[in-house]
Design a protein around this nucleic acid. Sequence first.
DNA 1: GCAAATTAATGATTTATTCAAG
DNA 2: CTTGAATAAATCATTAATTTGC
Lengths: 178, 178
Amino acid sequence: MPRTRWKPTPQQLMILQDLYRKGLTNPNSSEVQMITSHLSMYGKIQWKNVFYWFQNHKARDRHKMRKQLLQKYPKDDHRQLIINNKNPPSPSPSPSSSTTVSQVYSHSPPIFLHQVEATTEVSPQMMNYLWGNRMMRMNGRDWILMTDKGSSNIVHCSNKVPLRTLELFPVETTGFKD
Amino acid sequence: MPRTRWKPTPQQLMILQDLYRKGLTNPNSSEVQMITSHLSMYGKIQWKNVFYWFQNHKARDRHKMRKQLLQKYPKDDHRQLIINNKNPPSPSPSPSSSTTVSQVYSHSPPIFLHQVEATTEVSPQMMNYLWGNRMMRMNGRDWILMTDKGSSNIVHCSNKVPLRTLELFPVETTGFKD
DNA sequence: GCAAATTAATGATTTATTCAAG
DNA sequence: CTTGAATAAATCATTAATTTGC
């Protein structure tokens, strides 16, 4: 029984890459959950898949960049290679753990993620779960996913008042290979 | 808003240490969940707390051991320090990710963890959730926690047939400091 | 062309390092 | 100074590209 591994569908991949390019390189738990939830529309996917994808993508991005730089400035170049800077210059306001996905991705028929309950806690690396394949709950925050057509077939499990609503993803996909 | 961090109660700590000593140094997701569920009887606790505890404990254990050895065999001792061996000699059958908690801890009034549904998938690092504060579900496996008194106030959310039942924890706590 | 063999990509885990609360 | 929390780096493992011999 060789466990099989997740393979992103083209749509999923596109969205992930797009989010990444837009500056979301280090999504926190909630964000990962939101993304997972959305991507599940395009195929089977788990929270961990999204989490790992960002981890790996960032790491390998950085790795590639490092290699490029080392090619450019072969070895004991006196310049210091600072790649691991925690506070990126300015364009992408997405440091470690509190970037919101709102605005990150905003064109075309919107989908909304609606935060239903919140605690003070920010949620760590992991922690969360996808219930059925739409509703999820994690670390004291509940979210419901709604299309602009109204929340058809969306499960909602919270009894608290709404807090904020984030515009999130485009719906249609553009052309791609495979 | 400085986030506050989890502080294991003496009971929780004792159980964790005991599990660790018994050879469970690298619990998988399901195991972490089971442990979390049980420890929640002794105080507020989250999956991540347990997860981190084992991570840190193992790491610092090894670190300490390394330091001890380096003290013993100062520096360029010709002996090789092999600490990071993945396949422990024999006593503790707990390599990376598929140790079951069964048997690991077995004395006194037992509590059982009952696996309710299973998939082929083995569950990774994260992924799981504690619903309410007893029922949890993760990665296609459902578990219910039962005391030997019957499953009082335990939620059960699965509709599949039982698969196996693992004797898990002792109930009473022995003396300890703090 | 086309499988077997080898290599490259990348998903999944584990380990090391760092940060920060108390 | 200890230890919980979080991130980054290293590593393992599987699947896809690709190369190679026929």
